[in-house]
Nucleic acid binder design. Structure first.
Length: 607
RNA sequence: CGGGGCGUAGCGCAGUCUGGUUAGCGCGAUUGCUUUGGGAGCAAUAGGUCGAGAGUUCGAAUCUCUCCGCCCCGACCA
C-alpha cells in the first residue's frame, strides 16, 4: 500500500470514529459504564410464584424492578436506565411537536377537582386524604385540572395559542386489581400532554401531528406490533380518541383488526359489516318449548340454528330503569356500546321480579306484549333486520316462531349493540376481522371544552371576545411501554432489548479472567469502548460461563463480547448478538471497538 | 365488591391433615480449596419474632377465633 493511501485510510477511520461517536451520543444517557461486580440487583434463577407473564417474570428475574406493595414497584439500576431512555425518546418527540415540558404536583387539592366536577364522578380509584389541617387532598391520577389551573392564568390571548404542555410525572390510581407486574400498577410514571387551541380545526390538525409523533415514539422504542385504534372515550369525555395498543397475548384489551390494516378498533366500539337479508315473512306461530330457556336449548329443541332465534337481555341502568335489549340469538350484547348509546354510567343484569313487572317472562321473554311504559326497548340491527325468528311468548314454556320486526312489533330503538365476533366481516374492507389482545400503552383524546368550560379556562379572540380553549390530551404509560417491549421481544432466556432502550449497548464478558491475558484484554477493551462513547456493562466477576451467559441473557443487551483464553490465543474476541441464538463470530482484537461503534450507530440511526 | 388460592430465610419449596427435642431442603450469599464455554464440586459459615394478635394446651408453624398482606378469575377502570 502506498503511504498516502495508508494516511487516507487512517483519516477515514478517524472520521468514521468521530461520526459513530456523534450518532451514539445522541442516544446515550449520562452513565456510560458499569462493572457487574458492582451492579445492584440480583438475577434470580426462579421467578416468584406470582409472576406469570413474560415481562413480569423477566423484570423480576433480571433485577430490573422489585415489588414494594401491591402494584407499587421500585426501579433498580437496570430498569431505571431503560426508563430513562424511554423518557428521552418521548421528550424528543414531544419537543418535535412543539411541546413544552412542565412538572405539576402529584398532590392536588380536592377543590380543583370540585371545579371540574370529577371529584364527584371518579370513584375509589382516586386516592383521597386530608392534610394536617383537614383540607381534602388527593393524589393525581391525571392532570387535566392542574394543567387548566396553570394555563388559565398563564395563557389569555389567541396570540399565545396553540400551546402544548407535557410532563413525565408519577400518577397514582388506587387500582382494584393491579396485575402482571408493570402492566397494571397503582403508582406509575406517565407522560401526559395537554394542548390548547383557539379552534376545533386547529385541534384536529394538531391531533394528527401528535398521532404521528406517537407512531414515531413506539417505532423508536422498538415496539414490533403497535396499532392505533378507535376507542371508547370513557370517563374522559370528548369525541374522537385513539388508543395505541401493543399487540400481546397478555394484553387486557381485545382488538379487532382488518387483515389489510384499514380497520382497527377496540372490542368496546368495534362494529362489523355484516349484512342481514329479509326473507318473506311467515305466519306467527306459538310452539310448546317445555323447560327450554337458553338460546341453545330452544334452537336445538326446534332444530334451527341460533341465528334463527331472538335473544332478550334485561339490564338496569344507573337510574334503575329497566332496559330490554333484543339481539339475534347468535350474537352477544356489547354492554359498552349499549351503555354509550343509553348515556348511562352503569348497567347491571335485571332480576326476575323486575322483568316480570314489565310483563315479560324470564327465559321466554319477547318484545311482543311487553309493557313498553315499564322499560326502554333497544333492538340490535341483527334482530330488526332478520326474518322469521324464534322469540319468547312471554309465558312459561312457550315460544313464537316467525317473528318479524316491522310486522309483529314496530316500537323500540334500532341500533348497533352487537359484540363483534372473530371472522365477522370488516365494516371497511369486508375481510374477516382478526381478534387480538393488546396492551394500551398510549392514548390521545380530542377533549373539546369539557374542562376549559367547567374551570373557566378562556382566551380573548381577535374580536376581544372570551372563548373557552379547545383542548386535547395525550398519555403514554412509561413503565407499561417497557413491559410491552418485553412481551413483544423476548425468548425463553430473557428480554431482547432494542438498542434504543437497552440498559447498555455492549455486554463485555471476561471469561476465566485468571488465565493469561484475559483480564488485561477485557480491562483494556472496557476502557477503549468507554472512550469510544459506548455504554458498556462489564462482567468482571469471573463467574462460570454458564452463569455469566445466563445473566447476560436476562439483561438482554443487544451486543455481547466474550474475552476468553481460547479465542485470545488467536488474537480474537468472540462476538454474539442477543437475538442471534447461540451463534457467535470471532473478531480481530484490533477491530473490536470500531465494529461495536459501527453496529451501535447502525442500530441507532433509525431510532 | 364477589369467587378461589396462598402467607415458613433474599427466591423456590417441605413440614400443618394426625400438636411433641434445637423448624428443614434446594437456589442465592460469605470463606477456603478444587474447578472453568450455557446456572460446577467438596467443606464450613451466616441468615427465621413460621404474616399479626388473641385463645386452647404441660407444649402450637401445626388446633380455634379475629385481623392483615399477597396472587388468580370476575366486576370495575383516561
Amino acid at each position: 500500500m502506498h503511504p498516502r493511501d495508508g494516511r487516507r485510510a487512517a483519516r477515514r477511520r478517524a472520521f468514521l470514529g468521530l461520526w459513530y461517536r456523534f450518532v451514539i451520543s445522541l442516544a446515550t444517557v449520562e452513565i456510560f459504564v458499569m462493572r457487574m461486580s458492582q451492579l445492584v440487583g440480583q438475577r434470580l434463577k426462579d421467578a416468584p410464584r406470582d409472576a406469570q407473564t413474560a415481562s413480569h417474570i423477566f423484570l423480576i428475574r433480571g433485577g430490573y424492578i422489585r415489588p414494594v406493595s401491591t402494584g407499587i414497584y421500585s426501579l433498580l439500576p437496570l430498569g431505571k436506565r431503560i426508563i430513562t431512555k424511554v423518557e428521552r425518546i418521548i421528550r424528543e418527540e414531544m419537543d418535535r411537536v412543539d411541546g413544552q415540558e412542565v412538572l405539576m404536583p402529584v398532590v392536588l387539592p380536592q377543590e380543583l377537582w370540585d371545579e371540574s366536577g370529577r371529584s364527584q364522578t371518579v370513584g375509589a380509584e382516586l386516592l383521597r386524604f386530608q392534610d394536617r389541617n383537614g383540607k381534602p387532598m388527593l393524589l393525581g391520577m391525571t392532570h387535566e385540572e392542574a394543567v387548566v389551573h396553570l394555563c388559565r392564568s398563564e395563557v389569555t390571548s389567541y396570540k399565545q395559542l396553540p400551546v402544548m404542555l407535557y410532563q413525565l410525572q408519577t400518577k397514582y390510581r388506587d387500582e382494584a386489581r393491579p396485575r402482571a407486574g408493570l402492566i397494571r400498577v397503582r403508582e406509575f410514571t406517565m407522560k401526559d400532554a395537554y394542548s390548547f387551541h383557539a379552534t376545533q380545526e386547529n385541534l384536529e390538525a394538531y391531533y394528527e401531528r401528535v398521532h404521528a409523533a406517537y407512531e414515531r415514539i413506539f417505532r423508536r422504542l422498538g415496539m414490533k406490533q403497535c396499532v392505533s385504534i378507535q376507542s371508547d372515550t370513557g370517563m374522559m369525555g370528548g369525541k374522537v380518541s385513539h388508543e395505541f395498543m401493543a399487540v400481546a397475548e397478555c394484553g387486557e384489551d381485545t382488538l379487532f383488526l382488518s387483515p389489510d390494516g384499514r380497520y382497527k378498533a377496540n372490542k368496546e366500539v368495534a362494529t362489523s359489516g355484516i349484512r342481514f337479508e329479509k326473507q318473506p315473512a311467515l305466519a306467527l306461530e306459538e310452539v310448546h318449548t317445555p323447560e327450554k330457556k337458553s338460546i341453545d336449548e330452544v334452537a336445538t329443541f326446534l332444530g334451527v340454528g341460533p341465528e334463527h332465534t331472538g335473544k332478550a337481555v334485561f339490564f338496569l341502568d344507573a337510574d334503575n330503569k329497566l332496559i330490554f335489549a333484543c339481539i339475534r340469538g347468535d350474537f352477544e350484547v356489547n354492554e359498552t356500546k349499549l351503555r354509550n348509546y343509553l348515556k348511562t354510567k352503569e348497567l347491571r343484569f335485571a332480576d326476575d321480579e323486575r322483568i316480570r313487572a314489565a310483563g315479560a317472562e324470564p327465559g321466554y321473554a319477547s318484545v311482543l306484549s311487553v309493557d313498553a311504559t315499564q322499560c326502554r326497548i333497544v333492538l340490535d340491527r341483527s334482530f330488526a333486520e332478520s326474518s322469521n325468528l324464534v322469540v319468547g311468548a312471554n309465558k312459561a314454556d312457550y315460544h313464537l316462531k316467525n317473528f318479524n320486526y316491522g310486522r309483529d312489533f314496530t316500537g323500540g330503538e334500532v341500533v348497533d349493540l352487537a359484540a363483534v365476533r372473530p371472522g365477522d366481516p370488516c365494516p371497511v374492507s369486508g375481510l374477516p376481522l382478526e381478534m387480538k389482545r393488546g396492551i394500551e400503552i398510549g392514548n390521545i383524546f380530542q377533549l373539546g371544552t369539557k374542562y376549559s368550560t367547567a374551570m373557566s379556562c378562556n382566551f380573548l379572540d381577535q374580536n376581544g371576545k372570551s372563548q373557552p380553549m379547545i383542548m386535547g390530551c395525550y398519555g403514554i404509560g412509561v413503565g407499561r411501554s417497557m413491559a410491552a417491549v418485553i412481551e413483544q421481544s423476548h425468548d425463553q432466556y430473557g428480554p431482547i432489548w432494542p438498542m434504543s432502550i437497552a440498559p447498555y449497548q455492549v455486554h463485555l464478558v471476561s471469561l476465566n479472567p485468571n488465565q493469561p491475558g484475559v483480564a488485561e484484554t477485557a480491562e483494556a477493551l472496557y476502557s477503549e469502548l468507554r472512550a469510544a462513547g459506548i455504554e458498556v456493562l462489564y462482567d468482571d466477576r469471573g463467574e462460570k460461563a454458564g452463569s455469566a451467559f445466563a445473566d447476560a441473557d436476562l439483561i438482554g443487551i443487544p451486543l455481547r463480547l466474550i474475552v476468553a483464553a481460547k479465542s485470545l490465543a488467536l488474537g480474537k474476541v468472540e462476538f454474539k448478538r442477543r437475538d442471534g441464538g447461540r451463534n457467535s463470530d470471532l473478531l480481530d482484537r484490533a477491530d473490536v471497538v470500531a465494529k461495536m461503534q459501527e453496529l451501535v450507530a447502525a442500530a441507532l440511526t433509525d431510532a
